[in-house]
Simulated scan of single mutants.
Amino acid sequence: MFNLGILISGRGTNLENIFNFTKKFPTKIKISSVISNNPNALGIEIAKQNSLPLEVINHRKFIDRESFEREIDLIFKEKKVDLICNAGFMRILTSWFVNRWFNKQINIHPSLLPSYTGLDTHQRAINDGVKFTGCTVHYVRSELDSGPIINQAVVPISPNDTEKTLSERVLKAEHIIYPQAINLIVDKKLEVIDNNIIYKEHFLPKTILINPIENN
Rank of each mutant, 00 (worst) to 15 (best):
I63R: 11
S115P: 00
L52A: 05
V81G: 10
A41C: 12
L93E: 10
N17S: 15
G5N: 14
K23W: 05
V98Y: 11
L74I: 12
D64I: 04
L74C: 12
F68Y: 14
L112A: 01
R65I: 02
I31K: 12
L83V: 03
L113H: 13
K48D: 11
N58E: 11
I72D: 06
F21I: 05
V56K: 04
N50L: 10
I18N: 05
S36M: 04
E55I: 02
D82Y: 08
L42S: 12
I46Q: 08
L7V: 02
Q49W: 00
I46H: 13
T27K: 15
E66T: 04
I46N: 05
V56D: 07
D82E: 11
S32C: 04
K23F: 04
I8M: 03
W101Q: 01
E78H: 12
I31D: 01
L113Y: 13
S115E: 11
W96P: 05
K48S: 13
I75T: 05
L93N: 12
I44E: 13
D82M: 06
R60K: 15
Y116W: 11
S67G: 07
N50V: 11
C85Q: 09
K79D: 04
G43F: 01
V81C: 08
I84L: 14
F62I: 03
L74W: 13
I92M: 14
T94G: 15
L113F: 13
I106E: 11
S67P: 01
W96A: 12
N103F: 06
S51E: 10
I108K: 13
S67I: 03
E16K: 15
F89M: 05
P26C: 14
F102C: 11
L113V: 06
N99C: 13
K24F: 07
